[in-house]
Write a protein that binds this DNA or RNA. Sequence first.
DNA 1: CGAATTTATGAAAACGCTTACATCATCGGG
DNA 2: CCCGATGATGTAAGCGTTTTCATAAATTCG
Lengths: 339, 339
Amino acid sequence: MPRHRKPTLNDIARDSGHSIATVSRAMSQPELLQPKTLERIREVAARLGYVPNRRARALASGQSETIGVVVPTLNSPIFSSTLQEMQRCFAANGFQLLIASHEYDPANEMAALAQLISHGVDGMVIVGARRSRSCWALLEAAKLPLVQIWEGLPAHDRVTVDNQQAGYLVARYLLDIGHRRFGVICGHLQNNDRQSARVEGIRAALAQDGVTLARTQISEQALTISSGRAGCMTLLEMLPRPTAVIGTADLLAIGAMFEAQGRGIGVPDALSVAGIDNVDVAAHLSPSLTTVDIPAANIGAEAAALMLRRVRQEDTTPSTSISLPVTLVVRHSTARPME
Amino acid sequence: MPRHRKPTLNDIARDSGHSIATVSRAMSQPELLQPKTLERIREVAARLGYVPNRRARALASGQSETIGVVVPTLNSPIFSSTLQEMQRCFAANGFQLLIASHEYDPANEMAALAQLISHGVDGMVIVGARRSRSCWALLEAAKLPLVQIWEGLPAHDRVTVDNQQAGYLVARYLLDIGHRRFGVICGHLQNNDRQSARVEGIRAALAQDGVTLARTQISEQALTISSGRAGCMTLLEMLPRPTAVIGTADLLAIGAMFEAQGRGIGVPDALSVAGIDNVDVAAHLSPSLTTVDIPAANIGAEAAALMLRRVRQEDTTPSTSISLPVTLVVRHSTARPME
DNA sequence: CGAATTTATGAAAACGCTTACATCATCGGG
DNA sequence: CCCGATGATGTAAGCGTTTTCATAAATTCG
């Protein structure tokens, strides 16, 4: 009666009178066994309540059926959709996710990667391309299938969206309806190539029309609604006041909109506000938020699919790049400038 | 030069002229070695670029420094805050998280738990107490430290918030300011004890004042803003119209508010709307949302702390229960009914 | 100064599984 | 009727650690 130890293949082998190898095969390659043998083994396994020990399996076979994912943060509407979908796809194929976040701190990221690698993941999904030389060295040394998402270097697989294009689209639209004085609220650009690319895209559009973006017209903030408000507050002090504010993440734009409205500055009449991401709530706000749709869930699905092909070695092309389209979604938070 | 294989303890042992046991100790219990020996081994390890293989370590020691977490969904503002904080706490202590989601499907949950158990996690964090007998059997059989969060059975450790109290508080408040006709939008109650408890809390408050809640006054919905809108639409068809709508999750309440406003029904003048969760955006909406604050991040922190104590066997009390306070946050989406 | 401790290291047996190889029937074809 | 395939199963060698126990060296002490 005292079963303190979990049953192992060995126990099943003993009880069923077969060798441990046969029992192992019953678990992983049942088609190799005679139906009768298989049935007997399965019965014993069920009776003992056998659960395979994957870490032993991993050690012996070199495959852990585990994928490491490192994201900046888990509680962002964008990354969490990507993660949710990625998790779904991997789980459906028997893979588990080891998830870590670094909260935009390079040292944290390095530590997380090292941890995941030493845990023996079969592959690694990382966000963005901008990381230290030593961080890349670590990844190279691990010789793991690597999928970069959101942004990525050509040297490795990547599933990206054109963040620069996203910035371009929203700025181009605002220019087209007549805006010339802009304010931009963005995330900290330091270690964040997604945000940087979006700002560059905005710059590119403005440059086409000869509009420049001074340092004072950009406010770097954390990626929250409150920070969006704060950023907007700063920008509204500019004289003459901007006629349009772009948040390079919807949370920032939403914060900006709230701040403007709170100060009695009508959106879009007195100020146009636009974002990038197309988070759920954007469509429902009043006014609804003009933004650029980023297919966050799709990124997760495509990254998972690509990774699965790599891990199973079905795809051995040197390095695949999947780029998903971003699309401008014009809603009601933007309008022609008044003057 | 051709280093295809990653260096192992054995390689270090050979190169340094020490035994593999000594090298192992250099990694895990350096204080046992002579400084000179330690230094030599460390030098060789560094030169070879040694990274310990945790799955081998796990197999040999029985400890994987890995915790399994199963949540309903990753892309919910609430769960993702809990996860983010939990991840932070665990990572700071060298533990990695294997995260799975089941999207409110019991079969998925069962599969996820089985997978995580067979991956050899040192502990498991699960949301809620309501799950099938076989699911519990699986967990019992695994004999793992188990921490339930949000809701939980007394038989195991748990870090909870009083969801019933949350429902009670918001309903009590609305009653106190004069409301008698209510509509409730909640998540699907089937396998969700958090949502069920909140609805019960509302019922309890109403019962105190002799107000009943008919089946038609409750709309079960998915936990999204759109569903909140849909739910509100249904409830507004009631005659006479409710004077207050409670969403048992902020996303639902937010959707309800948008829907009412979209139909020209003023909030809070013609309709009071209140939620539960206190998500980030709630404070910024106009009108700002009356809600009940749920310390989601704290749940993660407390759960991590408790689990760490269990895994390290520092805490061997039979079963601990930590209950975090919920607090009513009155804002501007609620007011006395007009009539 | 030798017995009793203590300290640093090594040898080898796990941990639970996979898998290359060996074995032994079974079987169809020449 | 024997030979080479084919198929089912067993044997045993890993996989990279930890850990127990033994051993050898250094230290303490009566």
